[in-house]
Each structure stands twice: as structure tokens, then as C-alpha cells.
Amino acid sequence: MVGNLIILFSALFAVLSKDQSAGNVGLSVSYALQITQTLNWLVRMTSDVETNIVAVERIKEYGETEQEAPWEIPNKKPNDSWPDNGMVEFRNYAVRYRKGLDLVLKNVDFTVKGGEKVGIVGRTGAGKSSLTLALFRIIEASEGKILIDDIDISELGLHALRSKLTIIPQDAVLFSGTLRMNLDPFNTHNDTEVWASLDHAHLKTFVEGLPAGLNHEVSEGGENLSVGQRQLICLSRALLRKTKVLILDEATAAVDLETDDLIQKTIRTEFKDCTVLTIAHRLNTIMDSDRVIVLDKGKIVEFDSPPNLLQNRNSIFYSMCKDAGLA
């Protein structure tokens, strides 16, 4: 619009003015015709400057973001066999997602013995998944501490800690690449062990039926596999790692009941000597646990065996089981 107005007035003044020479009129009109292109270039340059400034702002923001704890701390490295028993202990633990926010876990204090199977239940927002994040130190403690086999995990390097824990998440995480790479990303196991883990996860028949077998290409996010198959691949990956502490973060929430039963059966047999913390989506999956933690508003309100909790008709666990038709 600005360019058109300049051209209009340039031509208008050339016509109205009587004493102008033809050369001056031609020069002014030709320059006026170029103004639109110049204005377009100006807008483009302004846009490029703004884009580059945003990039600098992002780099500045990332540079000022608080980093995670060190990946490795050589003088605090635990033994290769740690944890031997898999005893998990929370001592007056409290955590918030970042400074200024309310605590999501408050004065959490409990001990899980080595090899014990513990279910974690609670209403939405009770703090179940926050316990998992705290164990992997994705969020750091505000108060208290967590001990695994009497070693304070806050003193360990993140790699030393996370490599000794195994999680089967609610949303299966797969990467684009071969099936074998997804099962054994660091290539620390032989093919016999990989096939054995697939057999225990009830996937061996499926993989044997694939033309490429273990070299079958998995698309980004595992889109060329069903949800149940993705979850079983995560289970197979956990079987390969076979650490002393296993966390199930609503691992069967996205699969059908038949696949749920397969996963639960495998976990009971293959992880019978491991400490298993199960965040329950379906209450029937934790009814055979040794003990159950009931969370409410970030606090432990009940911690006992399922039969004892069900005997108390005033307990939260009883009311949840009644809602689910299990009591």
C-alpha cells in the first residue's frame, strides 16, 4: 500500500507540474516503481533479524537453565553388584517440581524390603508417578533422602543410579532402528540372551515370523507395531537388564486384559527375587502384592497388606476396590 501510494503521487506530481523536464519525471517515476521491491526487502530483513534474535534468546535461556547432577562421580561409584538386596527406603522425603511450587510429596517415610512386591495406588494427582521420578532423580529432593541398600542415591552419579534401576513405563518408548537395537541398545548381550528375553515376554513367535527377525526395522516411536507389542518389547528389554529394582509405572494401562495377564505372569516368575514397585492402574494387578501403599495428596495414608486393608471397611483402599468391583 505504501509503495502504491508513492508511485501514485510520483506520477500525479509529474502530470500536474508543468515546468519539469522529461528526464527528471522519468527518473522519479522509475525510482518510485522500485520502492515496492525495496520495502519487501526491508520487511524480510526485519523478519530475519527477529528470527535470529529469538535463536539467541533460546541459547541464552538454555545456558541459564539449571543442569542435572553430574553423570559420573568417580569417588562415589558403588560396587558393580549394587544393589545386592534391592531394599528401598524413603526417609521423611519431600519433593517439588521446581522452586516456588507446592510440595507434591510430603514427609514420605517407608521401607521396602529386598525382593518385596509393593503396589502404589491413589487417586489422580496423589503423587504416584512423582515417586518414580524421585527414584530416578529426575526431580531432586527438597527434604529427606532415598536409600537403596543403605546408600544415599543423592550422592551417586546419575548414570550409576539409573543404570541399576529398570522401569517399564506406561507409554512404551521405542526408537527408529532395528528391533535388536531397541532391546539391547548398548550391545551388551548376545543373541541367545535376546531370544530368551523375547521368549519370556511371549514375543518370540512374533519375531520369528518377521522376514528380518531381530533386524526388523522399527519406525519412529514404534508406529509399525501394535501398542501391546510395544509394551512387550519394553518388558523384554527389562528382562535383559534384570536389575534388582523394577518399577512398573502403570505398565499395563494401555494394553488389553490378555496382554496384561501375560505381563503380570512374566513379572511374577522372572522378577520373583527382585524388588518390584507397581504403580497400579488396574487394582487387580496389585492384589497379590506383599504390601500396598495408598497415597493421598502427596502423603502416605495407608501402608499394609491387601487383605488387612480390605478388612477395614473405612480404608481408602477398600473404597477404591469397591468402586472397581473387587470388594
Rank of each mutant, 00 (worst) to 15 (best):
F175L: 14
A126Q: 03
R180H: 10
D273S: 12
Y97P: 10
Q311R: 13
S289D: 10
Y97D: 04
E270N: 04
D19P: 00
L183K: 06
Y31R: 15
F271N: 00
P74L: 11
L179G: 05
E89Y: 12
G222E: 01
S289V: 06
R137G: 08
N182D: 11
M87G: 07
S10R: 02
T65D: 07
K322V: 01
V294D: 00
V194R: 06
G127R: 05
T46K: 11
K77F: 09
P83V: 01
D152Q: 09
E50V: 12
D296G: 00
I300M: 11
L5A: 11
D171R: 11
E220L: 09
Y97W: 12
D290C: 08
G125L: 13
F317G: 01
Q34I: 06
K244R: 15
E217G: 03
S21A: 12
R98Q: 14
L105I: 13
G122A: 03
R91F: 02
V121L: 03
P307F: 06
A196N: 15
N224M: 12
S10P: 03
W82Y: 05
E258K: 15
S154N: 13
F9H: 12
L5W: 05
M87K: 15
E68V: 03
L246T: 07
L232V: 06
K18F: 10
R230L: 04
C321E: 05
K265W: 08
I267Q: 05
Y93N: 01
G177P: 01
S81P: 00
M45T: 14
K76G: 03
I6E: 02
V25P: 01
G177R: 07
T269E: 15
K76Q: 15
E50G: 08
L135E: 03
T38N: 10
